[in-house]
């Protein structure tokens, strides 16, 4: 027996039941109903509303006359949008790749019976507790070309050191990557560490008895066993990359120029400051499609596995 069926009042012999009993049997649904209704209206209803707006000519205020794919044509003819997509690709790939590489390395180091694990782990993880705005503010100062890292290096005697990525159009997006990786890699480390701890120690012992050196054990046995963690980490990070907005705003404000424009900042500025609501909606729909393509198969498989 894995589930309790609700005591069968509704399904059978309703005529014998009193009103109170029937109300009682409806209670669970009545309790759930408001939350479900809220989700339907404010998530799915609003998504449809946004989709609808993307087919109109809305500018500063919504108008409801449909004009077809006009906004999408305009969206895809914006150099800004291409910049946003390109930046998202750079940011996404580096952010996910670096977080996983660094997270996995630290996790493996931490898994060597480290005595100070209880002190080290919180140090790698605390950035995750910070707001992106705080992270952005801190790194903006840290990377400040005049007074930050660059100056520190000069003071230390490295006169030729130059680090102006924050104001360099070609490099600014990489500062977003650095700050993002700093914030999330500790969390990825924690995921991998949990995965490592979940591996059956007897498998490792068997491999040791078989004569495998430590590196081979990691490469051939442990890392392949961490596959599900890789998948989860990629999904979570990809999702965070597409949604990330605050970090860019706080760190670079999307600039210099439009050098660090991302779809999320594009959507916001076109909708609320440039009065191009239809184009903004269209970009939001594109973002939604991107996330759906990643999340739905993942959720589906996760819920599937649970059942079997």
């Amino acid at each position: 027996m894995t589930t309790i069926e609700p005591v069968p009042i509704v399904e059978q012999r309703q005529h014998r039941r009193s009103f109170v009993d029937r109300l009682g049997s409806m209670l669970p649904k009545i309790v759930l109903a408001p939350s479900f209704a809220i989700t339907l209206i404010f998530v799915y209803g609003f998504i449809l509303w946004t989709v609808y707006l993307s087919f109109t000519r809305s500018r500063i205020l919504p108008v409801y006359e449909l004009v077809g794919f006009d906004a999408y044509y305009r969206l895809w003819s914006q150099p800004n949008w291409y910049m946003a997509i390109k930046n998202l690709a750079i940011f996404g790939v580096l952010y996910i790749g670096l977080c996983i590489a660094i997270g996995l390395c630290i996790a493996i180091l931490m898994d060597q019976r480290i005595r100070a694990e209880g002190i080290l782990r919180p140090i790698f993880l605390y950035p995750m507790a910070l707001s992106f705005v705080v992270t952005g503010t801190a790194w903006k100062w840290f990377l400040n070309p005049g007074l930050g890292l660059e100056k520190t290096m000069h003071n230390l005697g490295w006169e030729s050191f130059k680090f102006d990525w924050l104001v360099n159009t070609d490099m600014a997006i990489y500062t977003v990557v650095i700050a993002g990786v700093w914030q999330a890699s500790g969390f990825v480390m924690a995921m991998f560490l949990a995965g490592l701890r979940g591996i059956d120690g007897e498998i490792i012992k068997a491999a040791q008895i078989d004569g495998a050196p430590t590196i081979a054990i990691y490469r051939r046995i442990i890392i392949p066993l961490l596959r599900p963690v890789f998948l989860s980490a990629i999904i979570v990070l990809a999702h965070m990359a597409i949604k990330s907005y605050d970090l860019v705003i706080a760190l670079t404000g999307g600039g210099p120029g439009n050098a660090t424009e991302l779809p999320s900042t594009f959507m916001y500025s076109y909708t609320f400051t440039r009065s191009q609501m239809a184009v903004g909606s269209a970009s939001a729909v594109m973002m939604l499609m991107g996330i759906t393509a990643i999340i739905v198969p993942y959720l589906y498989s996760e819920l599937r596995e649970k059942r079997s």
Binding site: M1, I4, E5, V7, P8, E11, Q12
Partner: peptide, 9 residues
């Protein structure tokens, strides 16, 4: 469970 009423017949 049926006798207990935890499952409809």
């Amino acid at each position: 469970n049926a006798i207990a009423g935890l499952m409809p017949l």
